[in-house]
Design a protein around this nucleic acid. Structure first.
Ligand code: MN
Ligand code: MN
Ligand code: ZN
Ligand code: ZN
Lengths: 138, 138
DNA sequence: TTATGCAAAGATAATCATTCTTATTTAGGA
DNA sequence: TCCTAAATAAGAATGATTATCTTTGCATAA
C-alpha cells in the first residue's frame, strides 16, 4: 500500500518525500474525509516539524494529480478524500461525519435515466449524490 | 412578490427591514446562486451604506428560517439559493456557473430505489445531485 | 569532488471570507 | 407617541488558506 503510493507519485513525476508519504498515510488513517487541520494534528505527533504551508501545498498537488478529491461541504474548511473513484457521500446534519456510499445499481439507474433525458445545453461529466441525514448508532 | 416576502418574514417573527428586503431582492435578481460578495456589490449601488456584517447576519437568519439554502461548493466563499424546495444543481467545471435542475421523474426513481435499498444505520433526510459538467452555449 | 540546478519544505507574513464586539438606530407593538 | 427588543453600522478580530522568501536535499554535469 505504501509502495503503491510511491509508484503513483513517480508516475506523475512527483518526488517521493517523507512529508508527502506522511500526509497521504494520515488521510488514510484518519478515514473521515479529514480537514487540513486534522491532518496536521495527526502528523505532528510523529513528524513535529512539518510546516502548515507544506501540508496545504501537498494537498493541492495531490488534488491536481488526482490522488485526492476535495469534498463539497457547507463549512469553512475543506475536506479531502483519498477515494478518487466516483462514489457518493452520506452527510450527517448533526455531526461532521461524512461516509462513503457506493451503489452500483443506483449509478446504473441514474445513468440510464440520463440516456433518455438529456439536459439541454449541458454535457455531464459526473454525478454525485449528497445524501444528508443522521447516522443511528456508532 | 415583494409583499409575499414581507409576509414570510412576519410569519417567522422577523422584522421587515429595508436591508432584509434589499438582500432578498438582490439574490433573486442575481440569479446564479450568488456569494455574499456578489450580493454586497449589487446592493451597494442603491443602498451604499449597508454594512458587510449585516449582509452576513441577514443571510444566516434567512438560512435558519428556511428562506434561503446554502449551496455546497469546493470554493472558499459560500453561495446562496432562494429556491428552497428540494432540487439539484448543475455545476460547470470551468466557470462558477451553477444552475438549478429539477427532475421529478428522477426524484421518484431515486426515492423508489431507496425504498428497497435501505442504507444501514442511516436515516435519509434529503438527497441532492451534484451534476458536474460543462454548459454548451450561452 | 565540487558546482549548479531545481523541486520541495520551512518559516512566517499576507490575504480574504467570515465572525465578533460595541455603540447606535429602528421597527413595530403597547 | 413611546418604549424596547431586535437589527444595523463600523470596524476589529479570527481563522483558513495562500503567498513570499529562504533553506534543504538530491541529481547531474563540469
Ligand atoms: Mn436557484
Ligand atoms: Mn475562509
Ligand atoms: Zn468519499
Ligand atoms: Zn438552486
Amino acid at each position: 500500500m505504501n509502495t503503491d503510493f510511491r509508484e503513483k507519485l513517480q508516475e506523475k513525476g512527483l518526488k517521493v518525500t517523507p512529508q508527502r508519504v506522511a500526509i497521504f498515510e494520515a488521510i488514510l488513517k484518519l478515514n473521515n474525509h479529514p480537514t487540513a487541520e486534522d491532518i496536521i494534528a495527526f502528523i505532528k505527533t510523529n513528524h513535529p516539524n512539518i510546516s502548515v504551508g507544506t501540508v496545504y501545498k501537498v494537498l493541492d498537488t495531490f488534488v491536481e494529480n488526482n490522488l485526492l478529491k476535495k469534498v463539497k461541504t457547507e463549512k469553512d474548511s475543506m475536506r479531502y478524500d483519498p477515494h478518487v473513484a466516483n462514489h457518493h457521500h452520506l452527510y450527517c446534519y448533526e455531526t461532521e461525519r461524512i461516509d462513503d456510499y457506493e451503489d452500483e445499481k443506483l449509478n446504473e439507474l441514474i445513468s440510464n435515466h440520463f440516456k433518455t433525458h438529456k439536459i439541454k445545453n449541458f454535457k455531464i461529466q459526473d454525478i454525485k449524490l449528497q445524501i444528508t441525514g443522521k447516522f443511528n448508532n456508532q
